[in-house]
């Protein structure tokens, strides 16, 4: 059993019958799906998106898509894996739409550099928040959600080496910002 299949039984005990009812258009069953996966979908969206509003929009778009395409879900994969990939794609789509915001990153980094000089040690949440949107998305999808570089590249419309270099960038920064620099 894979991790995502374990998540299925953890989040939704009677997944099979709920999916069958949802496919038949039963709204209660669709709501059950929403209630089961609302929290992890939001968490994923919030970790990738900059604002709570964006994350909530992604949550809404994800479940609208789930309602419309539950008929296309094939049971060989896990339900959570399927929902999660929809959520990740919607979140990345939102990042692309908000791309202009990311252009501020360089300037922001310069500010960050100055702050680092004052040896201010950030906590992990704050450090994660400081990463560029793309780096943060890659580190989250790869290290926490367990997607491979190939899968991330596919979702982002980039190459696997882009995904790898973004991950390395993210870890270099986190390491510095978290005050993990090794002496000597």
């Amino acid at each position: 059993m894979t991790g995502t299949q374990l998540m299925d039984s953890y989040l939704l005990a009677n997944a099979e019958s709920v999916v069958a009812r949802a496919r038949a258009g039963d709204e209660d069953a669709l709501e059950e799906l929403y209630r089961a996966f609302e929290a992890p979908v939001y968490n994923l969206a919030r970790r990738i998106c900059r604002t709570t509003e964006d994350a909530e929009d992604v949550l809404q778009e994800t479940f609208f898509e789930v309602c419309r395409s539950i008929g296309r879900y094939r049971e060989e994969g896990s339900l959570w894996g399927w929902v999660r990939t929809i959520a990740a794609s919607k979140a990345l789509m939102r990042l692309r739409r908000n791309k202009y915001r990311d252009t501020d990153e360089l300037q922001e980094e310069a500010v960050g550099q100055r702050r680092e000089d004052t040896a201010l040690r950030m906590d992990l949440e704050a450090a994660l928040e400081r990463l560029s949107e793309t780096s943060r998305a890659v580190v989250w999808l790869h290290d926490v959600e367990g997607y491979t570089h190939d899968e991330i590249a596919g979702m982002m419309g980039k190459t696997p080496s882009f995904s790898k270099s973004q991950l390395a960038r993210a870890h270099q920064r986190l390491r510095r910002w978290l005050g993990e620099e090794v002496e000597g």
Binding site: E38, Q60, F63, V144
Partner: peptide, 18 residues
């Protein structure tokens, strides 16, 4: 990173979805 607490939505978006 994996142990970070799960963030929860402050609003219920199901009414909009449905």
């Amino acid at each position: 990173l994996k142990a970070l607490p799960a963030l929860r939505p402050s609003r219920d978006r199901w009414p909009q979805v449905s």
